Amino acid sequence: MLLPLNAIARGLPPNLGQLASPGPVAFELGPITFRWYGMLIASGLFLGMLLAQRLGRRRGLDPERIGDLTIWLVLGALPGARLYYVLFEWDRYADRPLQAFAIWQGGIAIHGAILGGAIATLLFARRYRLSFWQLADVVAPALVLGQAIGRWGNFFNSEAFGRPTDLPWRVYIPPAQRPPGLADAAYYHPTFLYESLWNLGVLALVLWLFFWGLRHPGRLKAGTIFLVYFATYSLGRVWIEGLRLDSLMLGPLRVAQLVSLGGIALGIVGLLWLYRLKRPLPDVV
């Protein structure tokens, strides 16, 4: 846990059990501002690429080719994540559309990133005549590692938090960032932390599966790791999203929960197809 120095400055009791963001700016170098949000996303991408290259090598894939795929993933995932978010929050950007490009201020959606990344991977697989499902299995652990790291950008931006709480691990939210009607509530569920920890658990699971498959050749079918990732990540997102106060909405429904329920169903159906019906996943290349 972090010592909430800014909380002390506001006259709040210094409690080592609570989280309090030091702010979105890491440091400034002349006219250039380095923000935690962007730095964490960049770190997640870099570490994810290294992990994917190591896993790809174990699957017989060229690490340089995986490095090339990373570029395609960035070009697909980041715009997809931002576009997804902006479409469901268009009222915020209708009068100032240029703000839709200010990704460093926060406001991306992981489901948009997954969709954009999947399209980029599909195009990449077709371009280089590779198996989409083999690539997806290698990318999935890297993706969830990046998610676990990137979620901490929400902490520094004081966003993506949950309902008010007095739990010991609560997070302090500055007044300017609090939702309407909750100006007097200072502490909230750190849902970014919940999701980061959940993602680390998913990472451990899919890595265990990956290396189990290496020890048992032929028993782990192509696409398994991606399906397990998508189902288990979605399972966590369903309950975590239920705590959040800033969900993207489709009428009275939370978009992330709807998509996550679809992800759980997709994962289960895909695994039944692979292991119950004993058929390979349809070739999408």
Rank of each mutant, 00 (worst) to 15 (best):
I268R: 02
L250Y: 12
A77Q: 08
I114F: 09
V144L: 07
V269T: 12
L55W: 05
L12A: 06
G112E: 03
Q134W: 03
P179V: 01
L75I: 06
G17P: 10
Q147S: 04
Y187G: 02
P252F: 02
L203I: 00
G112A: 08
Y128D: 07
A125L: 07
L3G: 07
W273R: 14
P13R: 00
L5R: 07
L3I: 07
A160F: 09
P14M: 10
L220H: 04
S21W: 02
I225C: 02
L167V: 06
A140T: 06
G201L: 14
A176E: 13
L209P: 00
F226L: 13
Q177A: 15
R92P: 00
G218P: 01
R10L: 12
I240K: 10
P13V: 08
P4S: 03
A102S: 13
A265D: 07
T33I: 14
A9I: 01
R58I: 01
V202L: 07
L135F: 08
V269H: 07
A52S: 12
N154S: 04
G44Q: 06
R126S: 09
V25G: 05
L78Q: 06
M49Y: 08
A186Q: 13
L235R: 06
L277M: 12
P97A: 10
I114L: 14
A100G: 15
P24F: 10
A100R: 05
S247P: 09
L3F: 08
V138D: 01
W273G: 04
I41L: 15
D283T: 03
G112Y: 10
S234A: 15
G56V: 10
A185R: 14
W239Y: 14
R10E: 15
R178V: 07
R96P: 00
E241H: 11
G242N: 13
P31W: 11
Q99N: 13
L55E: 00
G251H: 12
G107R: 00
L271I: 11
N15T: 13
Q134T: 15
P97I: 11
G48K: 07
R279G: 13
G213Y: 03
K221H: 15
R215T: 10
P13F: 00
T121G: 09
H189Q: 14
I32K: 09
G76N: 02
F211E: 11
R54D: 01
G146F: 05
W133R: 06
G213R: 02
Y275T: 03
A118S: 14
R57K: 15
I32W: 11
W133C: 05
P164G: 11
F124Q: 01
G236C: 05
F27M: 11
L83W: 08
I32N: 02
K278E: 14
G76Y: 00
V259G: 03
L281A: 04
Q18K: 09
A77G: 10
W72R: 02
L73A: 09
S21L: 02
G162Q: 02
L274Q: 07
E195K: 07
V202I: 14
R215K: 15
D246V: 10
R219N: 04
A118P: 01
L193C: 06
S43G: 05
S21P: 00
G213C: 08
A265L: 15
V285W: 02
I225V: 14
F192I: 07
A77T: 13
S234V: 09
A160C: 04
R92D: 01
L29H: 03
L83E: 08
Y37A: 09
